[in-house]
């Protein structure tokens, strides 16, 4: 196998001492476009947050290209769930995208022309340049999601973690987003997406991880995306017609 981009060992994460992720082992190869699937409350968001050091696990470790996350921050971009922020916050689309460049700046230093240029380019890529000065609450759900994607692009990372980027977006936006993700993969980047629509998994992704408190399975979509794993993950008899 090629390079391992993300490696998770024996990861256990708890809220108030109640574990919501048990003993997760996971290897994500470089250059895959991977879906994380599982029912609501399965711990998908928690897994991403633990990998990114936002939550402290009670056991286990995470490495990004062999080193702890703290050392590899600049290689990683993150798109949180859209609902996790207050869209009434007084700021513009461009400003939100600029936030993606803050990581490379570090503490105290302010964004300059270079960062602004990166943000404008990212806005252009997601087709939102015309909205750069729009207050973020004046954007539709799909546009807000594009802004979040642009912010991740502005980070210019190697690994992208996206928490439900298709939530509440229309079909056009969904296609636009998936095309950008596929382009990232083509450029050799690793993209990890929490995804809900099981029907589109084979069409969009080449790698998949089934998660429900424990890891059920991980691997190439063509090998492991089957009724057996779906049933194990969702607990009910699952039948999806997979177009190969």
């Amino acid at each position: 196998m090629d390079n391992i981009a993300v490696k998770v060992d024996d990861l256990t994460v708890a809220y108030n001492y109640k574990p919501v992720l048990w003993d997760i082992d996971l290897e994500i190869p470089e250059g895959v476009l991977m879906a994380i699937v599982g029912p609501n409350g399965a711990g998908k968001s928690t897994l991403i947050k633990a990998i990114l050091g936002i939550l402290k696990p009670i056991a286990g470790s995470v490495t990004i290209y062999g080193n702890p996350y703290d050392k590899q921050r600049k290689l990683v971009a993150y798109v949180p769930q859209k609902g996790s922020v207050d869209w009434d916050f007084p700021t513009t689309a461009l400003d939100v995208v600029m936030m993606g460049t803050y990581g490379s700046l570090g503490w105290i230093k302010r964004p300059k022309q270079k960062e602004k240029k990166a943000a404008l380019e990212a806005l252009e890529k997601v087709g939102m340049l015309a909205f750069k000065n729009r207050q973020i609450s004046q954007l539709s759900g799909g546009q807000q999601q594009r802004i979040f994607l642009a912010r991740a692009l502005a980070q210019n990372a190697s690994i992208y973690f996206m928490d439900e980027p298709f939530q509440g977006v229309d079909a056009t936006t969904e296609i636009a987003i998936i095309n950008i993700l596929k382009e990232l993969r083509k450029a050799g980047k690793t993209v990890i997406v929490v995804h809900h629509d099981l029907q589109t998994v084979p069409e969009y992704f080449d790698w998949v991880t089934f998660l429900n408190v424990k890891k059920i399975a991980t691997g190439p979509v063509k090998d492991i995306f089957n009724d057996n794993n779906l049933t194990k993950t969702y607990g009910i008899n699952y039948k999806v017609s997979i177009q190969k």
Binding site: K49, L52, R73, Y78, M99
Partner: peptide
């Protein structure tokens, strides 16, 4: 604005 992003950026 975004606690999660801030944490992930260090």
């Amino acid at each position: 604005f975004d606690k999660g992003l801030a944490a992930s950026l260090g």
